[in-house]
Each structure stands twice: as structure tokens, then as C-alpha cells.
Nucleic acid binder design. Structure first.
Lengths: 123, 123
DNA sequence: TGAGTATATAAACAATTGCGCAGATTATCA
DNA sequence: TGATAATCTGCGCAATTGTTTATATACTCA
């Protein structure tokens, strides 16, 4: 019954990846289009060091993919299931808070499904 | 866009609930049947204090419901969406590790869907 | 009421984690 | 080759979180 330890740890780790505001913001930023670190840093208004750490963690966890081009590194969502789960969580919380606070609208706009073929994000 | 702060925080908190081994074990224990604290403690082999704290947190987070009966408190899963998300995560990780380690079997058995209880012959 | 059982809470500790600073690494271009 | 830009990493700090010991509350029964 101890082999389950690994299973539970793996599941917990998976949840833990998205249990942090900054990482959720990152996921929101790159769930549709890949972006270089510098752009993510700018959009989130955080320090480059911090973003880099989170990007690294998310990449090692298999949630983000990275691609080097020149001296820039582009990150993008690499785990469609995780993105889908994020959407579910947003919907779940939106439903819960539906009558309490005016958060619903915002929540439903997080992690949007790709509407059509989109081009690179513009500043 | 500072109102999003609350949204991201709520989503992060939701993920954080299941980002811990003990809480995942608890969810696994009560996702089908409600159980008193004492039984959960026994099944998980943890201290009563620790289990109680986690149960309380999960209850405040809305993922567990509690019911008092006599001097016992029964807990059960109260958020079907969370249970479904847990299953999805298990499936996701099982798929990822499918070729690596023999975890798949265990993972797929976590958070099982409620089996149709045979409708006792007293139709 | 008091004894006994089941569960919850308080305080203290240890471990983890997010963060910023400074320096290291990698890649492009002159 | 060196200079510059973009990203990553080692170290220390502060805040958070999981755990334990001891105690408190709630309920039942005699």
C-alpha cells in the first residue's frame, strides 16, 4: 500500500504547479500564444528573476514547453489537459461566486479557449 | 486590472487545497462514502490532530461537507467538480507515466467513480 | 451532575516556498 | 575575440504551511 505514496505525490505536485498566483498568470499569458520571457515579465509586471524561476518550474513539470530562438526563449502551454483543468476550475469558482461577487465575468475570461487562428500577440 | 487579483487568488487557493498528499488521501477516502473522523484517521495512519486540521481546511474550502451524528462527525466530498478534476489529474499523470513506471494501475484506482450500488432486493 | 469518547483548537517548531540581489550563462553581433 | 542583450541560478531572507504536543470543546451515557 506504499506504492501509492508516489502516486499521491505526483498528483499533489501536479496540483501544486497551479496553486500559485504568479504561475496562474503565466499560464493565462501563454495558454494561447507562445511568448518570450521578456514579454511575460512585462505583462505580469514582475521581476525577471521571479518569472524565470516560475517558468523553469512549470517547464520541468511538463506544463510549459520552451523554444529557443536567438537569444530569446519562448514559452507556451504544453499540457492541454492542464489548461482544460484550469478552465474547469475557473468555471467552478465563477459558479460558486456567482451570487456573491462580480468576479464571474473576469474568471470566465481567464484561460480562454483559442477562438480562431490567431497571430502573435501584439503589445 | 486589479480585480483579477482576487480571481487568480481564488483559483490558486482552489488548486492549493489538493496540492497536498494528506488532503488527497482524505479526498480519496471520502469521495464515495462519508466517514467519521476516527475512521479516516485509522485508514490514513496519521494523527487525529493533523487529520482534523486538514478536514477543517477542506471543509472551509467547500470541497468537503460535514455532518454531526452523536459524538461523531462525518465528512464526505461536497464538490463533484473537484472530484472530477482529481480524476482528470490522475488520468493525466497515469498517461504521462504510462511507459515509465508501473503507477498507472494505482492512479486509475484513485478517486473511483461511485459504482452503482446494487439496489437491494427490496425493490 | 460527572465520566468518557470524539473532535477541534492553541502554541511552537521544522520544512517548504516565493522573492530579490548579485553574479553566471548563453547567444548575437561587431 | 569582446561587448551587449536575454535568460538562468546560487544565496539569503521572509512568509507560509504541515506537523506535533498539550489542551479545550462538544456530545453521550450513567
Amino acid at each position: 500500500m506504499d506504492k501509492l505514496d508516489h502516486a499521491f505525490d505526483a498528483v499533489a505536485a501536479y496540483f501544486r504547479v497551479m496553486s500559485e498566483q504568479t504561475r496562474l498568470r503565466i499560464m493565462h499569458a501563454v495558454c494561447e500564444v507562445e511568448k518570450p520571457v521578456s514579454q511575460i515579465v512585462e505583462e505580469l509586471g514582475a521581476t525577471q528573476t521571479n518569472i524565470s524561476r516560475h517558468l523553469n518550474l512549470m517547464h520541468r513539470s511538463g506544463v510549459l514547453a520552451r523554444r529557443k530562438q536567438g537569444h530569446q526563449v519562448y514559452y507556451r502551454a504544453a499540457d492541454p489537459e492542464m489548461v482544460e483543468i484550469c478552465r474547469r476550475v475557473c468555471n467552478r469558482i465563477a459558479a460558486q461566486l456567482d451570487q456573491e461577487k462580480p468576479l464571474r465575468g473576469d474568471l470566465l475570461r481567464l484561460m480562454p479557449r483559442p477562438k480562431r487562428r490567431k497571430r502573435a500577440a501584439r503589445g
